[in-house]
Nucleic acid binder design. Structure first.
Lengths: 239, 239
DNA sequence: TGTACATCAGTGAACGCGCGTTCACTGATGTAC
DNA sequence: TGTACATCAGTGAACGCGCGTTCACTGATGTAC
């Protein structure tokens, strides 16, 4: 974190403790959920007194904000590197057909949207609470600062880029038409409405399967969530 | 609630206070989320002392359990009555084509799966926190008793019934094949694998759009979530 | 209809806990001459 | 290289709060004769 080149020892120490605090915070979130995050508990776990943490974070909200920011950034980075790898290795015609491209080889760095989908899932399963922190039920009373929405917009851009490589070919839908006039969220991305539509479907479908899986709603049902995930993705790409 | 016929005045009073407690609990959940539910706060709001509530609920968990149970029951009831109305009014050939059946007339009691979808959405929007309580990020440290999973199974049965009326006609998918051998969750419902698959897709897609909408993730994006919802549903039914 | 007793709703005090956060202070680390 | 000073990490005590929950008690409501 941060450029360690021009950093004084004190600055490096500070950065290290801040990182350590966040690590313990994640650990705590993983077991008790984000709404129960406690500065005092983190301090105790680190062998410090409670007030010591206030040297590093002004208050609880600031810590949560940083965790959310890190989570978004991590996801965006993961997707970005997946997109790059996929672009190199499979050339321009990424995610051509759709059916079958979901759960066959290339699990980690498949092409186009299919690759991104599996990257998201792997990222979410690695640390479910991190996914739920940003996409789950919001922490009550917490409101995210603006720069966070900027990062989440980056993620959308990555989806639009990937979708543009192989735009869906199908008749225009009512939603396409609506999106043509309501595309502020896409910034100045040149993607056509069908790609905007596809990106939204991609997002909501992945979230639908993933969030129910992470929340434990499939537990005891007996089927393999990975196959449902793949099926939803395949259906999306088969357009 | 409960059969008021053979109830003594004291029993009726008890039931009334229990209901009143739950009402205030919902109100509190609506503003602060479920994880912050406080018995003392409810008592204060009702003009009672804190310990008084222990006459009505053994502890906080019991109250939450009852709220979750009520939420599931309410959703199941809503879907059941929607299914009945739809069955009556549009005959057996419910939800035939698919495309366009999403956001045209019959918003509240449309036929088959389309009708159920809009019923779910209306139910969720009426009280977002109630939806999130059962399908959102789980309350940390809380584990639901068995009878609740029974009610959620009823909901699945309703989906399977509706789907069976107009089974999808499309080639068998890998997931279909998998579900043929992993259908414990469907109980002894005679639905074919394609219908099982459809029910799962229905559930996850609706949840995908709805949960992101309720959690506020579409806020500021500018498009109409209802249209995205309808589009996802249409796509599901066009099989 | 009236009295004696049991049931039960609700109160107030109390316990122990953990929370976020402020504040005055100690002691170590770095900086300037 | 050594001394004087400023910076800053971390501590312990404290404040005020709200939480869930237990307990002994009061007073009203219902029941039995």
């Amino acid at each position: 974190m941060a450029d360690t080149g021009t950093a004084t020892p004190r600055e490096r120490y500070r950065a290290q403790i801040r990182a350590e605090i966040k690590e313990h915070a994640w650990q705590q979130i993983a077991t008790t959920g984000a709404s129960a995050l406690s500065l005092n508990a983190i301090a105790k776990q680190m062998g410090m007194s409670g007030p010591a943490l206030y040297r590093y974070y002004a208050n609880r909200d600031e810590l949560i904000t940083e965790l959310i920011r890190d989570a978004y950034r991590s996801l965006a980075d993961t997707l970005r590197s997946t997109a790059e790898k996929g672009g190199e290795e499979s050339g321009g015609k990424a995610a051509e057909g759709g059916a079958g491209s979901g759960d066959d080889r290339g699990d980690d760095q498949g092409a186009g949207l299919a690759g991104l989908a599996h990257a998201v899932r792997a990222w979410a399963l690695r640390d479910p609470q991190r996914y739920l922190l940003i996409y789950g039920t919001p922490v009550p009373g917490y409101h995210a600062p603006d720069d966070i929405t900027a990062i989440s917009a980056q993620i959308m851009t990555l989806l639009l880029d990937a979708g543009s490589a192989a735009p869906p070919r199908r008749p225009e839908t009512p939603l396409d038409h609506h999106l043509a006039g309501h595309r502020d969220w896409a910034g100045d991305h040149p993607a056509p409405p069908a790609v905007l539509h596809q990106a939204l479907s991609f997002w909501t479908r992945i979230h639908g399967v993933l969030s129910l899986e992470l929340a434990g709603h499939f537990a005891g049902m007996g089927f393999d969530p990975a196959l449902l995930f793949a099926a939803e993705l395949d259906d999306l790409l088969a357009r």
